[in-house]
Simulated assay, not measured.
Amino acid sequence: MRKNIVAGNWKMNTTVPEGVKLAKEVNDAVAAAKDLKCEVVIGVPFTHLTAVKAVIDINKVGLAAENCAAKDKGAYTGEVSAAMVASTGANYVILGHSERREYFNETPEMLKEKVDLALANGLKVIFCCGESLELRENGTYKEYIKSEIEGSLFHLSADQFANIVIAYEPIWAIGTGKTATSDQAEEVHAVIRGLVADKYGKQVADDTTILYGGSCKPANAPELFSKPDIDGGLIGGASLKADSFMGIVTAF
């Protein structure tokens, strides 16, 4: 049985004290909630990992870094390795976000290296994929998403792939206020699950969690999460306030 997951992605927001306060609020809300139907994860800046880990119950709230380096260690000033992330007590890392691909020129081959290092250090990976408005409109978005997944994930064994969560993020719906319809999101989620089935078989595909990552809010989460192939969300802006984030968490 695959997990339902709602993961926050704070991006470059909050100072450490602000982040600790928000993490405490989320942790307390999760602890007080009855019969949650999903796992909760918060993705925080590197600077926050240790301080946030100290104020959450890691058994109830997972902790993710927002990136890691494509190198194990060495003279790479400013980079943060997967081993460093794991040493903070984090148990997830978000890789391949569209902002990383666009602003920092991350390629499928680079992300393949990051995935390998993350898994080698015991981290679960939330792997992002998705298309631009141009690709959506010219009809090549399915092929593009396939190339992102194949290029960075399909060298893994089935056992390794069990530690991968895929997040579909239509780039045209991130921070724009636009949201893919539930049918549009479900279509792509089903395509992704089909790609995994073709590579690893139906059982692995059925066990793979696929999240929606495009302007998901408390108002539209119930409809999105009702779709058979949408297993939760990777939440940006709405994760920066505990009440809106929990409104999504409780949407299942």
Rank of each mutant, 00 (worst) to 15 (best):
P108W: 00
E102G: 05
E109A: 14
F127C: 07
S147H: 08
E109F: 08
F127T: 05
E131R: 03
Y141D: 10
L95Y: 05
A120T: 08
G139E: 09
R100K: 08
E99C: 09
L133K: 13
E113P: 00
Y141A: 08
F127I: 05
L111C: 11
S98Q: 02
E113G: 08
N121V: 06
L123S: 03
R136S: 07
L117I: 09
K146G: 01
E99T: 02
M110Q: 15
E106C: 06
F104R: 00
L111E: 13
E148V: 03
K142I: 12
E109T: 07
E131F: 09
G130R: 00
R100F: 13
L117N: 02
L111D: 06
E99N: 10
K146S: 09
S98W: 03
S147F: 05
L95W: 04
S147A: 13
L123G: 04
V125Q: 01
L135F: 10
A118W: 00
S132K: 12
A118T: 01
E109R: 09
S132H: 12
R100C: 08
C128V: 11
R101P: 04
F104T: 01
Y144G: 01
E131S: 10
K114N: 04
E109V: 08
V125D: 00
K124H: 05
E137P: 02
K112L: 15
L133S: 12
I145E: 02
